[in-house]
């Protein structure tokens, strides 16, 4: 890790996209997230790091209400996106998830063609009026997913036939196709080999131009490579949150330091 480069990162202030205040999450009796407050900036890559079971994925899934699909999950506290409470009764989680895209740990392309995988979201949300519109959206999404050149001649082949890295980029392109404002990524590279990981990381860095990206990762090197802000979770508590460069070079909390230097986790 190049410490010099880390500290020289651009740290100019940006707009706040997501605000979480006093968030608690319970799975049945288990208290998974304890009083987490965080402000996530727009057009920034924010990394959540921490040992397994520390609640970073759980917190990520709160941001698009994916925890709603789990019966025993209960969420307290406020989460605001662009100043609007996403847990307000009048908010439809389905609409919210169109605005907050998500990419999962394991590539999960639908058993459909590459084209239909990308077109799935736009079709559901009625983003395209004509076939030509849809073709445009698919092409744009695949270009943003850095996959267009590899698949442009075989859009009708099944998405499950691609390699692991291509599948994950397909899933990212699929999430981008619905024009979200925030992209959540839950360990997007943990099922990929180093080359595919490098491609996806490069892609994440490009996506920063247009979206607020939140990424959960087990790899501290990855967090250091792709993110501008880093949050360290431990046992359901947000221990430290700040500039990636500072977290990795001059952590304020001893637990953060222990984790980063490999003494816990």
């Amino acid at each position: 890790m190049n410490d010099m480069r880390l500290t020289e990162r651009a740290t100019d202030m940006k707009e706040i996209k997501i605000t979480a205040e006093g968030v608690d999450v319970f799975y049945g009796d288990a208290h998974a997230i304890k009083d987490v407050s965080v402000e996530i900036e727009d057009k920034t890559v924010t990394a959540f790091i921490g040992p397994s079971g520390c609640g970073k994925s759980t917190f990520l899934r709160c941001l698009n209400r994916m925890n709603d699909t789990i019966d025993i999950a209960r969420i307290e506290g406020d989460i605001l996106i662009d100043g609007e409470d996403i847990y307000h009764p009048k908010v439809d989680p389905v609409q919210l998830r169109a605005k907050v895209g998500m990419v999962f740990q394991k590539p999960n392309p639908f058993p459909k063609s590459i084209y239909d995988n990308i077109a799935y979201g736009p079709r559901i949300h009625g983003l395209a009026k004509t076939k030509a519109d849809l073709d445009d959206i698919v092409e744009r999404a695949l270009r943003r997913g850095a996959l267009w050149d590899e698949v442009k001649d075989r859009l009708q082949e099944p998405g499950t036939g691609l390699s692991g890295g291509q599948q994950q980029r397909l899933c990212i392109a699929r999430a981008v196709a619905t024009e979200p404002e925030v992209l959540l990524m839950d360990e997007p590279c943990s099922a990929l080999d180093p080359i595919a990981t490098a491609q996806v990381e490069e892609l994440i860095d490009e996506l920063r131009q247009n979206y607020s990206v939140v990424i959960v990762t087990h790899s501290m090197q990855q967090a250091a490579r792709v993110s501008q802000k880093t949050a360290f979770f431990h046992l359901g508590i947000l221990v430290e949150y700040g500039e990636t460069g500072e977290i990795f070079t001059t952590p304020k909390d001893s637990r953060t330091e222990s984790y980063i230097t490999g003494r816990i986790g």
Partner: peptide, 15 residues
């Protein structure tokens, strides 16, 4: 059908 398919679809804002 794997849960990942459902998650993927819900994550895209499908009902």
């Amino acid at each position: 059908v794997p849960q990942a398919m459902r998650d993927g679809s819900y994550g895209l804002g499908a009902t």
